[in-house]
Design a protein around this nucleic acid. Structure first.
Lengths: 197, 197
DNA sequence: TCACCCACTTTAACACCGTTAACTAATTAA
DNA sequence: TTAATTAGTTAACGGTGTTAAAGTGGGTGA
């Protein structure tokens, strides 16, 4: 009978392990199945250890949510460097939104409190989300250098259209194949972007 | 010390009491706070009694969700009788969508698994939701008598736009006043409807 | 009257959950 | 050697969905 040896890890490694495990369970079983005890089991620790890294489950979810917005920001900034044309920029950013939601659905869910994911901490005033917003607003401004309110309105419209289609495409994927939805998404976002000229 | 008398109720009354209490707690404290025991307490019964009316919490949520779609169907049919013009019809139905989401947010949440509400039963193929869909599809068809696929696509666009704006307006209500969002919603839905001519 | 049944309802339990206090074992510092 | 610190655990509290068992009281047949 040999005692099970636990690999020594740095604090940062353990922290990442917690986040990774949470996302992993969420992806396979849904966010409603994510529990502190399950996470602890997966990283070979007891439950209270998780609380040395995150004050509460809410804070853990908030961190993952922020990670999602941070990822989006990076991708948006990549697009900004890659293209100069505002029309191209906004369209490509729209496509990133779709890809992100489809390839990392558990992330998208926690960012919008969808399908069992539920984080009570307010999502707004988050640094990363503000950054994401201002990138898109800047692009829209380069289309239409109008008042801040007009920009805000157009941003709200763009975001709504994108988010609405992503959510419904996911919800209706048994009735409407996801490829078809993606096609409609691309058309609609293209049309929206064109309408800004 | 007088024993607390429980009012005699019919089976239907008790059933309605359960549903009403669930919605009531959800409205005041959010869906994550709705528990079978709390419902039972509120209707002066013990928890197992609830299971004589609903096989599980999931089934209870599903019933409430269906009630939401049934309400929408009734409202849609009212609009159909009230107006003949397809443009007017679709716009008025869009407004009902908004009013419903704002006046009965706990209903809207459970219908789309939003913000802590989580029902694992699949929402599609529900009788009521199909009815709702076909009403809107019929209106769109009277605009553009095209293939079923085209109608389906436009319906998907209309639904996405409406749902997306409702969700984001609710999410961003601290940053953007709800009146402002409603104004943008009306404009956008008006524009969508017009674009169908 | 008494035993029985029946419908109704509750209690108690199971296995989970988030969270925290108390404890243990090992290592380090004095 | 002893005290202090660290790392990690167990056990507990009050909560969850859910179900099996127990109780309770009224009516009925003998």
């Amino acid at each position: 009978m040999q005692a099970i040896e636990r690999k020594p890890r740095t604090r940062e490694q353990t922290r990442m392990g917690i986040v990774h495990t949470a996302k992993d369970i969420a992806r396979r079983e849904g966010w409603q199945a994510v529990s502190i005890r399950k996470i602890a089991d997966a990283i070979d620790y007891s439950a209270p250890i998780v609380y040395e890294y995150f004050d509460s489950k809410d804070v853990l979810l908030d961190e993952i949510r922020t990670e999602g917005f941070r990822y989006l920001r990076q991708e948006y900034e990549r697009i900004m460097k890659l293209f100069r044309d505002p029309e191209k920029r906004l369209f490509e950013i729209s496509l990133i939104q779709w890809d992100f939601a489809m390839k990392q659905p558990e992330m998208y869910q926690v960012m919008y409190n969808l399908n069992g994911a539920f984080c009570t901490l307010p999502v707004h005033q988050s640094q990363e989300m503000q950054a994401v917003s201002s990138i898109v607003c800047d692009i829209i401004f380069s289309f239409i250098p109008k008042s801040k309110e007009s920009i805000q309105k157009l941003y709200f419209e763009w975001w709504s259209l994108s988010h609405g289609m992503i959510v419904l495409a996911t919800m209706l994927k048994d009735q409407q194949p996801i490829d078809k939805s993606e096609q409609v998404y691309r058309e609609s976002m293209r049309r929206f972007v064109r309408s800004l000229r």
